[in-house]
């Protein structure tokens, strides 16, 4: 048979030309907070819908001195987070961590860490559908005009219809926000519990949607307001009990089914936050004795 061509990859997988293209898009995204910048998204070695936008953004900003943390559903150990982390460890040789405080870049799917982020950190969100108006108006040509005119009546009508039907707004995740008073923006499918963390955040927040070919950004210390009404102010979810492992209150919890007799427990969705608290001596009602790190295998 004929000879196979030699296949080689660049630092961080992407070639330099692709990185430049993504970097130019990131700069425009930062300059126009909340506006979705089109970019020529590439095929990545993981499927569309599995974080290709976030991975391209991370690959374009990542340097040899960075320390990378990857979470999915708040956890470092979910399989897709593991796969993305090992991708960058292999292609860029960067150091990785599970500790929020140590990381310089945190790539996330569906959560914002509970630990307050600092000015030296960058949060990269994986975004499936970047257009907050998409489910109200499927056509890109239409939604683009609505953004150009800052015509967000459609969104307010939708939220108000919720109130009329259910007595309250029935959107629990991917809850739309207004960024810097101009663009209505999709915060990615984080639970609305996390929305307040986007406001006046000291860290730069970058959003990558690979399949939909969009990058957008929220610069540090930018006003981010969840849409609401005077008579129906925005409210986050509340849990009526603390984390069963670390006792944390005011955090987002995962519901774990323990048996088929209705047994349930609620634990931190942010696994690092839970680990750090337990290491510091906090314990919940179902904390295992003598295993404060919670790293043992089941």
């Amino acid at each position: 048979m004929s000879a196979m061509p030699t296949i080689t990859y660049n630092f961080g997988y992407l070639d330099e030309q692709t990185k430049r293209m993504i970097r130019r898009a990131i700069l425009k995204a930062i300059a126009i907070p909340g506006y979705q910048v089109p970019f020529a998204s590439r095929e990545m070695p993981m499927p569309y819908g599995w974080g290709t936008g976030g991975v391209q953004v991370t690959a374009a900003i990542l340097g040899p001195d960075d320390i990378l943390k990857v979470i999915d559903q708040g956890s470092d150990d979910t399989t897709n987070a593991v796969a993305i982390r090992s991708f960058f460890a292999a292609t860029a040789g960067v150091r990785t961590t599970t500790r929020t405080k140590e990381a310089t870049i945190i790539q996330t799917r569906h959560r914002v860490p509970e630990t307050k982020l600092g000015p030296e950190q960058i949060l990269v969100y994986q975004v499936p559908i970047p257009e907050p108006l998409r489910f109200l108006e499927p056509r890109e040509t239409e939604t683009r005009t609505l953004h150009a005119l800052a015509d967000y009546g459609l969104m307010h009508v939708k939220l108000y219809e919720d109130i009329a039907r259910h007595g309250h707004i029935a959107t629990t995740y991917a809850y739309p926000v207004m960024v810097a008073g101009r663009y209505v923006t999709d915060p990615s499918p984080i639970p609305k519990f996390d929305n307040p963390k986007l406001d006046d955040c000291p860290a730069l927040q970058l959003f990558g949607a690979g399949r939909e070919q969009r990058i957008y950004a929220i610069p540090p210390h930018t006003r981010v307001v969840s849409l609401d009404f005077e008579d129906h102010p925005f409210r986050v979810q509340r849990f009526d009990r603390p984390c069963a492992l670390c006792g944390a209150e005011d955090v987002y919890l995962d519901e774990v089914i323990l048996d088929d007799r209705g047994g349930r427990m609620f634990v931190c969705s942010d696994t690092d936050h839970c680990d750090q608290r337990r290491a510091a001596g906090h314990a919940g009602t179902m904390a295992p004795q003598g295993a404060p790190k919670g790293t043992s295998k089941p």
Binding site: F11, E16, I30, I61, L204, P220
Partner: peptide
Amino acid sequence: DPARDAQRVFKALMSALAR
């Protein structure tokens, strides 16, 4: 070193625009 040099310069530009 094109990959690393460009990344360092870009990081400065990105931080400058973000702040």
